[in-house]
């Protein structure tokens, strides 16, 4: 296994996954996945339920370690550094690689404090926090809706607004990578549409990894599609290629809905 799989050059991959295998009591949840995430891209990870796509995305910021009994082999290089390497702290990994969950997970505090959460941890000065929160809310496409009442409880927001606040909260610490684990599965169509347009804007400057079971969502927002099946990466490529001219019969079956 080579130590330096990729170099942190401007156009090299931000995240490079090499031979990633996750085992739970002898059962392989992920089996030798190798995949690159180039800068300024949105990769949709699709596959039938139980294919390991949520586990996959959770290995990318070491959240997988919170589930007891899983063993991770292979490596994930973040700008050339293996995040599973010696001397790497998961707490610091997760600052660089943010995550948004299926359901909105706003904290029981004000809108402002939610967005400022990550910055408060490192005791950023107040004026930095102010500016970073504003920028993050703008980038998440929530600013215009909440700028009047930043001190209101975040729980008073609608579901779609809460989810965009979660995106803003992750953006405030300025990560290079944002992992989105089925971020719209709990939202109505209108809210889904807003979150999708936020994703489309964000992929202009950071790496997005979107887990979704919804092929049409992948078609709408992603540049690239990676298809997982039974823990193995079956096919990856530009969205149009994979969805319109799949090379593997398993991919074709999934796209045409025979798994559902």
């Amino acid at each position: 296994m080579s130590g330096e799989a990729s170099s942190p050059s401007a156009n090299g991959p931000v995240l490079a996954v090499r031979g990633l295998t996750v085992t739970a009591a002898k059962r392989k949840i992920l089996d030798g996945v190798t995949l690159d995430f180039p800068p300024r891209s949105l990769t949709a990870v699709v596959g039938p339920s139980g294919c390991g796509k949520t586990t996959f995305v959770r290995t990318l910021n070491r959240m997988v370690e919170l589930t007891p009994g899983l063993r991770v082999e292979g490596h994930v290089d973040y700008v050339g550094q293996n995040i599973y390497g010696p001397g790497v702290n998961p707490v610091l990994v997760r600052r660089r690689i943010g995550m948004v969950f299926q359901r909105p997970t706003v904290f029981p505090m004000s809108i402002f404090e939610n967005a400022a959460f990550g910055l408060r941890l490192i005791h950023e000065p107040e004026e930095v926090v102010d500016r970073a929160v504003t920028e993050a809310l703008v980038r998440a496409g929530l600013w215009d809706e909440v700028k009047q009442d930043l001190d209101r409880s975040a729980l008073s927001l609608s579901g779609g607004q809460q989810q965009r606040l979660c995106i803003a909260r992750a953006l405030a610490v300025n990560p290079r990578v944002l992992l989105l684990d089925e971020p719209t599965s709990a939202l109505d169509p209108a809210a889904t549409q807003r979150v999708e347009s936020t994703m489309e804007r964000l992929k202009q400057d950071i790496v997005l990894v979107l887990v979704t079971h919804n092929v049409s969502q992948a078609a709408r927002v992603s540049d690239r599609v990676a298809f997982l099946h039974s823990g193995r990466l079956i096919e990856v490529g530009p969205t149009a290629d994979v969805l319109e001219r799949p090379k593997d019969p398993l991919t074709e079956q999934f796209i045409t809905g025979r798994f559902a």
């Binding site: 942190p8 973040y78 700008v79 550094q81 995040i83 001397g87 790497v88 702290n89 610091l92 990994v93 600052r95 660089r96 910055l119 950023e124 930095v128 500016r131 970073a132 920028e135 993050a136 980038r139 953006l171 405030a172 610490v173 300025n174 990560p175 290079r176 202009q204 400057d205 950071i206």
Partner: peptide
Amino acid sequence: MENASVPSVDNIRFDG
């Protein structure tokens, strides 16, 4: 349009 206020840091080891 990255966040200008907080520098993006790549180091994932202990920064001292």
